[in-house]
Design a protein around this nucleic acid. Structure first.
Lengths: 93, 93
DNA sequence: TAAACTAGTTTATAATATAAACCAAATAAC
DNA sequence: GTTATTTGGTTTATATTATAAACTAGTTTA
């Protein structure tokens, strides 16, 4: 039984990664809506994914409002795929 | 995105359940070997699965030695299957 | 009969997840 | 025009969880 990457084996971080795997990029507000998480929790988990090198976080402006955008990195994509493979060993898929 | 049952969303508990889903029963020593966990950790996680009603734990003897055997319950089986379904929503399977 | 091993449990600690409290800027209301 | 209110977050405190270390009780071996 393979190890399950602890960075990905967390509901919220997995949800964020799952979304980012399917889109070019997603901003903080969108991720918050989709995951139905609190801003605080999301902020912390985005930090962890970013520190792990799984996503990049870009802070910019849209008009006068701040906008934090996230993108999955190649490393993140690979880690996600490996996590899925590892999980399959547990789920009998 | 569905909630991931926190009782199952733990590497070691998921590993135990995964094994129990495929066998009639499994004893403590076997689970410890297969999961490569420490006895303490396994003991705690077995307790949690048991308290959740996902497994039954039977203590018996084989000769003079104690033997703790685990079996998945119908409730546990259902929870596992629901967990797998919920996860699929995250993994794009 | 003392040392070492087996089969666990209990407890202490480290790590994690989560929410609550906070902050700064922008917009809306009075 | 200044005072709420909302938006878009971050930081910090707390509760939960995972994990290992320490312990117990009985068993086998030397």
């Amino acid at each position: 039984m393979k190890e399950l990457d602890p960075i990905l084996h967390s509901q919220l971080r997995l949800a964020v990664m799952s979304i980012l795997m399917n889109v070019e990029e997603a901003d903080f507000v969108y991720l918050k809506e989709q995951t139905e998480s609190t801003a605080g929790n999301l902020s912390v988990q985005i930090d962890k994914l970013s520190n792990a090198g799984y996503i990049t976080v870009t802070k910019g402006f849209v008009g006068k409002k701040t906008r934090t955008t996230c993108q999955v990195t190649e490393q993140g994509r690979k880690a996600f795929e490996e996590y899925v493979e590892a999980l399959k060993g547990y789920l009998n898929l």
